[in-house]
């Protein structure tokens, strides 16, 4: 082909550029969409419970991912500090995934069981009450907002649509699971659920 033809026809050039770029996509991205290790849940990974789903929604809404990652990278130092390195199979029910890329605060993917619920409540209401040098903002309004079964039903419905295997029984359990709970309770429940798929959490 004559390169002048490509240079003079911007439409053709655009198509060829797209072809070249999609080669990268085909070898890097497509295998991840069909490989078992990235599309099937790792052993021990269960869909979140209703209250945890509500908490995850708060996590996303309040933008916690702007300061916290949820992926322990394949570096020995990180594994020593946070726990087992992240596995792709741990994120299959995480829509949209909360891996994040900014660490103003520490990684949270293995924070479950590290502190008790009361600590999390104090810390989320006012981080400086327990960590004087913290620059994390407080979220006191979460304690005043209730979780409603209706909202959780919609959240779990959306998750089911994108492939999280919730059963009808899971949906029936929603009202009891979230009755009387605040968004703070929900967020704490979500934080306590963050752990490695093969990690035992005492407490």
């Amino acid at each position: 082909m004559n390169h002048e033809k490509v240079e003079k026809h911007i439409g053709l050039m655009a198509i060829l550029i797209a072809v070249v770029i999609s080669v990268g996509g085909i070898v890097e991205i497509v295998p991840l969409m069909i490989s078992k290790s990235t599309t099937e849940a790792a052993p021990g990974v269960e869909p979140l419970e209703p209250l945890q789903v509500a908490g995850r929604d708060v996590y996303v809404r309040e933008g916690c991912y702007n300061c916290h990652s949820q992926q322990v990278r394949y570096l020995a130092e990180e594994v020593l500090r946070y726990g087992p390195a992240a596995k792709p199979g741990e994120s299959v029910y995480d829509h949209p995934f909360q891996w994040g890329s900014k660490r103003t605060g520490p990684d949270l993917s293995r924070v479950g069981g590290r502190y008790n619920d009361e600590w999390h409540e104090l810390h989320l209401m006012d981080p400086r009450a327990v960590v004087p040098e913290s620059n994390m903002p407080g979220y006191p309004w979460l304690a005043r907002k209730q979780v409603t079964a209706d909202d959780v039903r919609k959240m779990m419905g959306a998750l089911r649509t994108v492939g999280v295997p919730y059963t009808d029984a899971d949906f029936e359990a929603i009202p009891d699971a979230v009755a009387g709970k605040t968004q703070l309770d929900a967020l704490v429940a979500y934080l306590q659920s963050l752990k490695a798929s093969d990690q035992e959490v005492t407490q």
């Binding site: 500090r81 590290r114 502190y115 009361e118 600590w119 104090l122 810390h123 009450a129 327990v130 960590v131 004087p132 040098e133």
Partner: peptide, 18 residues
């Protein structure tokens, strides 16, 4: 620093309830 400071404070001086 990595396991206890969150509750008892970085210099172990505690906080309300800790």
């Amino acid at each position: 620093g990595s396991y206890c400071a969150g509750c008892h404070g970085a210099n172990a001086e505690g906080a309300r309830g800790y």
